[in-house]
Nucleic acid binder design. Structure first.
Length: 260
DNA sequence: ATGGTCGATCGTCGA
Protein backbone atom coordinates (compact mmCIF):
# COMPACT_ATOMS: atom_id res chain seq x y z
CA UNK A 1 0.00 0.00 0.00
CA UNK A 2 1.57 3.21 -1.18
CA UNK A 3 0.84 6.36 0.85
CA UNK A 4 2.14 9.68 -0.46
CA UNK A 5 2.38 13.23 0.84
CA UNK A 6 2.70 16.31 -1.34
CA UNK A 7 2.53 20.02 -0.59
CA UNK A 8 1.05 21.11 -3.92
CA UNK A 9 1.14 24.88 -3.26
CA UNK A 10 -2.33 25.61 -4.63
CA UNK A 11 -4.67 22.98 -6.04
CA UNK A 12 -5.98 25.28 -8.76
CA UNK A 13 -2.50 26.06 -10.06
CA UNK A 14 -1.46 22.40 -9.74
CA UNK A 15 -4.54 20.53 -10.96
CA UNK A 16 -3.06 19.25 -14.23
CA UNK A 17 0.24 18.36 -12.57
CA UNK A 18 -1.47 16.59 -9.70
CA UNK A 19 -3.64 14.53 -12.05
CA UNK A 20 -0.60 13.66 -14.15
CA UNK A 21 1.23 12.56 -11.02
CA UNK A 22 -1.64 10.32 -9.90
CA UNK A 23 -1.72 8.67 -13.33
CA UNK A 24 2.02 8.09 -13.23
CA UNK A 25 2.62 7.10 -9.61
CA UNK A 26 -0.82 5.68 -8.76
CA UNK A 27 -0.57 5.96 -4.95
CA UNK A 28 -3.31 4.24 -2.96
CA UNK A 29 -3.52 7.29 -0.68
CA UNK A 30 -2.20 10.82 -1.16
CA UNK A 31 -2.19 13.61 1.39
CA UNK A 32 -2.13 17.14 0.01
CA UNK A 33 -1.10 20.29 1.85
CA UNK A 34 -1.49 23.96 0.94
CA UNK A 35 -4.50 23.36 -1.27
CA UNK A 36 -5.25 27.10 -0.82
CA UNK A 37 -8.92 26.46 -1.51
CA UNK A 38 -12.20 26.41 0.34
CA UNK A 39 -13.89 23.00 0.37
CA UNK A 40 -16.59 24.09 -2.14
CA UNK A 41 -14.00 25.09 -4.76
CA UNK A 42 -11.79 22.01 -4.46
CA UNK A 43 -11.81 20.20 -7.84
CA UNK A 44 -13.36 17.10 -6.31
CA UNK A 45 -14.93 15.75 -9.50
CA UNK A 46 -11.64 15.78 -11.40
CA UNK A 47 -9.97 13.69 -8.71
CA UNK A 48 -12.97 11.39 -8.40
CA UNK A 49 -12.82 10.80 -12.15
CA UNK A 50 -9.18 9.82 -11.60
CA UNK A 51 -10.37 7.09 -9.22
CA UNK A 52 -10.06 8.69 -5.79
CA UNK A 53 -12.33 9.36 -2.86
CA UNK A 54 -11.76 12.89 -1.58
CA UNK A 55 -11.96 14.60 1.81
CA UNK A 56 -10.80 18.17 2.36
CA UNK A 57 -10.31 20.69 5.12
CA UNK A 58 -9.80 23.99 3.37
CA UNK A 59 -9.92 27.70 3.98
CA UNK A 60 -9.82 30.84 1.87
CA UNK A 61 -6.52 31.97 0.40
CA UNK A 62 -3.94 29.82 2.17
CA UNK A 63 -3.30 26.61 4.13
CA UNK A 64 -5.76 23.73 3.57
CA UNK A 65 -5.22 19.96 3.57
CA UNK A 66 -6.83 16.99 1.84
CA UNK A 67 -6.70 13.19 1.75
CA UNK A 68 -7.42 11.20 -1.41
CA UNK A 69 -7.81 7.43 -1.35
CA UNK A 70 -8.69 4.76 -3.90
CA UNK A 71 -10.80 3.08 -1.21
CA UNK A 72 -13.31 4.83 1.06
CA UNK A 73 -12.25 7.22 3.82
CA UNK A 74 -13.91 6.66 7.18
CA UNK A 75 -14.07 8.47 10.55
CA UNK A 76 -12.88 11.70 8.95
CA UNK A 77 -11.86 14.31 11.53
CA UNK A 78 -10.46 17.76 10.70
CA UNK A 79 -8.53 20.00 13.15
CA UNK A 80 -5.71 19.20 15.55
CA UNK A 81 -7.10 18.96 19.10
CA UNK A 82 -5.90 21.24 21.85
CA UNK A 83 -6.95 24.75 20.80
CA UNK A 84 -10.52 25.47 19.72
CA UNK A 85 -9.55 29.03 18.80
CA UNK A 86 -7.09 27.87 16.11
CA UNK A 87 -8.80 28.64 12.78
CA UNK A 88 -5.98 27.48 10.49
CA UNK A 89 -6.86 24.51 8.26
CA UNK A 90 -3.75 22.42 8.83
CA UNK A 91 -4.81 18.93 9.95
CA UNK A 92 -7.07 16.15 8.74
CA UNK A 93 -7.33 12.51 9.83
CA UNK A 94 -9.11 9.57 8.24
CA UNK A 95 -9.15 5.79 8.42
CA UNK A 96 -8.68 3.54 5.41
CA UNK A 97 -9.47 -0.17 5.45
CA UNK A 98 -6.66 -2.53 4.48
CA UNK A 99 -6.42 -6.26 3.79
CA UNK A 100 -5.13 -6.79 7.33
CA UNK A 101 -7.30 -4.25 9.16
CA UNK A 102 -7.08 -0.47 8.89
CA UNK A 103 -4.60 2.40 8.79
CA UNK A 104 -5.15 5.85 10.30
CA UNK A 105 -3.70 8.61 8.10
CA UNK A 106 -3.17 12.29 8.95
CA UNK A 107 -2.46 15.04 6.43
CA UNK A 108 -0.38 17.63 8.28
CA UNK A 109 0.61 21.19 7.38
CA UNK A 110 2.70 22.26 10.36
CA UNK A 111 3.10 26.04 10.70
CA UNK A 112 6.13 27.61 9.04
CA UNK A 113 6.83 29.83 12.05
CA UNK A 114 8.87 32.56 10.39
CA UNK A 115 10.07 35.00 11.39
CA UNK A 116 11.41 33.76 14.72
CA UNK A 117 10.85 36.12 17.65
CA UNK A 118 7.24 36.74 16.62
CA UNK A 119 3.76 35.37 17.33
CA UNK A 120 4.24 33.08 14.34
CA UNK A 121 7.02 31.12 15.99
CA UNK A 122 5.08 31.01 19.27
CA UNK A 123 2.15 29.56 17.32
CA UNK A 124 4.41 26.99 15.67
CA UNK A 125 5.71 25.80 19.02
CA UNK A 126 2.21 25.50 20.47
CA UNK A 127 1.13 23.56 17.39
CA UNK A 128 4.11 21.19 17.64
CA UNK A 129 3.22 20.57 21.29
CA UNK A 130 -0.40 19.81 20.40
CA UNK A 131 0.76 17.41 17.70
CA UNK A 132 2.94 15.59 20.23
CA UNK A 133 -0.09 15.07 22.48
CA UNK A 134 -2.14 13.77 19.55
CA UNK A 135 0.66 11.43 18.47
CA UNK A 136 0.81 9.85 21.92
CA UNK A 137 -2.93 9.21 21.73
CA UNK A 138 -2.61 7.64 18.29
CA UNK A 139 0.36 5.55 19.31
CA UNK A 140 -1.52 4.19 22.31
CA UNK A 141 -4.29 2.94 20.03
CA UNK A 142 -1.70 0.42 18.81
CA UNK A 143 -2.81 0.48 15.19
CA UNK A 144 -0.90 1.40 12.03
CA UNK A 145 -0.75 5.20 11.81
CA UNK A 146 0.92 7.34 9.15
CA UNK A 147 1.48 11.05 9.82
CA UNK A 148 2.12 12.52 6.40
CA UNK A 149 2.85 16.09 5.57
CA UNK A 150 4.85 19.27 5.40
CA UNK A 151 6.30 19.46 8.91
CA UNK A 152 8.30 22.63 8.18
CA UNK A 153 11.12 21.10 10.23
CA UNK A 154 14.65 20.39 9.01
CA UNK A 155 15.48 17.59 11.46
CA UNK A 156 19.27 17.43 11.11
CA UNK A 157 22.09 19.32 9.38
CA UNK A 158 22.27 16.55 6.77
CA UNK A 159 18.70 17.48 5.77
CA UNK A 160 19.87 20.71 4.14
CA UNK A 161 22.38 21.30 1.36
CA UNK A 162 23.51 24.45 3.18
CA UNK A 163 22.58 24.05 6.87
CA UNK A 164 24.34 27.29 7.78
CA UNK A 165 21.85 29.21 5.64
CA UNK A 166 19.00 28.05 7.90
CA UNK A 167 20.35 28.72 11.40
CA UNK A 168 18.09 31.77 11.87
CA UNK A 169 15.08 30.15 10.22
CA UNK A 170 12.13 28.73 12.14
CA UNK A 171 12.48 25.44 10.24
CA UNK A 172 15.90 24.76 11.80
CA UNK A 173 15.52 26.24 15.29
CA UNK A 174 16.54 24.04 18.24
CA UNK A 175 12.91 24.12 19.43
CA UNK A 176 11.64 22.77 16.12
CA UNK A 177 14.28 20.07 15.90
CA UNK A 178 13.72 19.12 19.54
CA UNK A 179 10.02 18.49 18.94
CA UNK A 180 10.86 16.33 15.95
CA UNK A 181 13.18 14.23 18.11
CA UNK A 182 10.40 13.93 20.68
CA UNK A 183 8.14 12.53 17.97
CA UNK A 184 10.75 9.90 17.16
CA UNK A 185 11.43 9.15 20.83
CA UNK A 186 7.70 8.62 21.33
CA UNK A 187 8.02 5.61 19.05
CA UNK A 188 7.47 7.00 15.56
CA UNK A 189 9.77 6.18 12.64
CA UNK A 190 10.94 8.66 10.02
CA UNK A 191 10.20 6.39 7.05
CA UNK A 192 12.18 8.27 4.44
CA UNK A 193 15.35 8.58 6.52
CA UNK A 194 15.05 4.96 7.64
CA UNK A 195 15.14 3.86 4.00
CA UNK A 196 17.56 6.54 2.77
CA UNK A 197 20.47 7.28 5.10
CA UNK A 198 22.48 8.80 2.26
CA UNK A 199 23.07 12.58 1.92
CA UNK A 200 21.25 14.93 -0.47
CA UNK A 201 17.73 13.60 0.13
CA UNK A 202 15.55 16.71 -0.18
CA UNK A 203 11.84 17.42 -0.65
CA UNK A 204 11.74 21.21 -1.15
CA UNK A 205 13.67 23.64 -3.31
CA UNK A 206 12.90 27.36 -3.26
CA UNK A 207 11.61 28.92 -6.45
CA UNK A 208 14.30 31.60 -6.17
CA UNK A 209 17.93 31.71 -7.22
CA UNK A 210 17.90 28.47 -9.21
CA UNK A 211 17.77 26.39 -6.04
CA UNK A 212 16.63 23.20 -7.77
CA UNK A 213 19.29 23.43 -10.48
CA UNK A 214 21.91 23.71 -7.73
CA UNK A 215 20.17 21.00 -5.67
CA UNK A 216 20.05 23.58 -2.88
CA UNK A 217 17.24 21.78 -1.09
CA UNK A 218 15.92 20.85 2.33
CA UNK A 219 14.06 17.82 3.68
CA UNK A 220 10.91 19.06 5.44
CA UNK A 221 8.15 16.74 4.12
CA UNK A 222 7.99 13.67 6.33
CA UNK A 223 6.17 10.38 6.83
CA UNK A 224 6.13 9.33 10.48
CA UNK A 225 5.04 5.75 11.21
CA UNK A 226 3.60 4.35 14.40
CA UNK A 227 5.27 1.11 15.58
CA UNK A 228 2.53 -0.99 13.98
CA UNK A 229 3.07 0.81 10.66
CA UNK A 230 6.86 0.73 10.91
CA UNK A 231 6.70 -3.04 11.34
CA UNK A 232 5.24 -3.12 7.81
CA UNK A 233 7.69 -0.71 6.17
CA UNK A 234 8.81 -1.92 2.75
CA UNK A 235 10.24 1.16 1.05
CA UNK A 236 10.11 4.94 0.90
CA UNK A 237 11.20 7.51 -1.64
CA UNK A 238 11.08 10.99 -3.11
CA UNK A 239 9.53 11.63 -6.54
CA UNK A 240 11.73 14.61 -7.36
CA UNK A 241 10.97 14.42 -11.07
CA UNK A 242 7.86 16.58 -10.55
CA UNK A 243 10.11 19.51 -9.55
CA UNK A 244 11.41 19.63 -13.15
CA UNK A 245 7.90 19.89 -14.60
CA UNK A 246 6.45 23.13 -15.91
CA UNK A 247 4.67 25.10 -13.19
CA UNK A 248 6.02 22.87 -10.40
CA UNK A 249 5.20 23.03 -6.74
CA UNK A 250 8.25 23.98 -4.69
CA UNK A 251 7.72 20.66 -2.82
CA UNK A 252 7.80 17.16 -4.35
CA UNK A 253 5.85 14.01 -3.44
CA UNK A 254 7.27 11.70 -0.76
CA UNK A 255 5.92 8.16 -0.51
CA UNK A 256 6.03 5.10 1.67
CA UNK A 257 5.17 1.52 0.76
CA UNK A 258 3.68 -0.48 3.62
CA UNK A 259 2.76 -4.18 3.59
CA UNK A 260 -0.70 -3.59 5.04
C1' DA B 1 22.73 45.52 0.20
C1' DT B 2 19.03 44.38 -2.53
C1' DG B 3 16.12 41.61 -4.94
C1' DG B 4 15.56 37.50 -6.35
C1' DT B 5 9.93 33.50 -7.21
C1' DC B 6 5.43 31.88 -6.72
C1' DG B 7 0.00 31.55 -5.51
C1' DA B 8 -4.20 33.61 -4.26
C1' DT B 9 -6.18 37.60 -5.29
C1' DC B 10 -6.20 42.19 -7.13
C1' DG B 11 -2.59 45.34 -2.67
C1' DT B 12 -0.53 42.44 -0.04
C1' DC B 13 0.30 38.45 2.71
C1' DG B 14 2.31 33.91 3.24
C1' DA B 15 5.91 31.02 2.03
Amino acid sequence: MKITTWNINGVKARLEGALAYLREASPDVICFQEIKSVDENFPRLEFEDAGYNVVTHGQKGFNGVAILSKTPLEDVTPRLPGDDTDEHARYLEATIATQTGAVRVASIYLPNGNPIGTEKFIYKQAWMRRLYVRMQMLRDEEMPVVLAGDFNIIPEPQDAKRPAAWVNDALFQPESRSFYREYLNAGFTDALRACHPEPDVYTFWDYQAGAFQKNDGIRIDHLLLSPQAADRLVAAGVDRFTRAWEKPSDHVPVWVDLAL
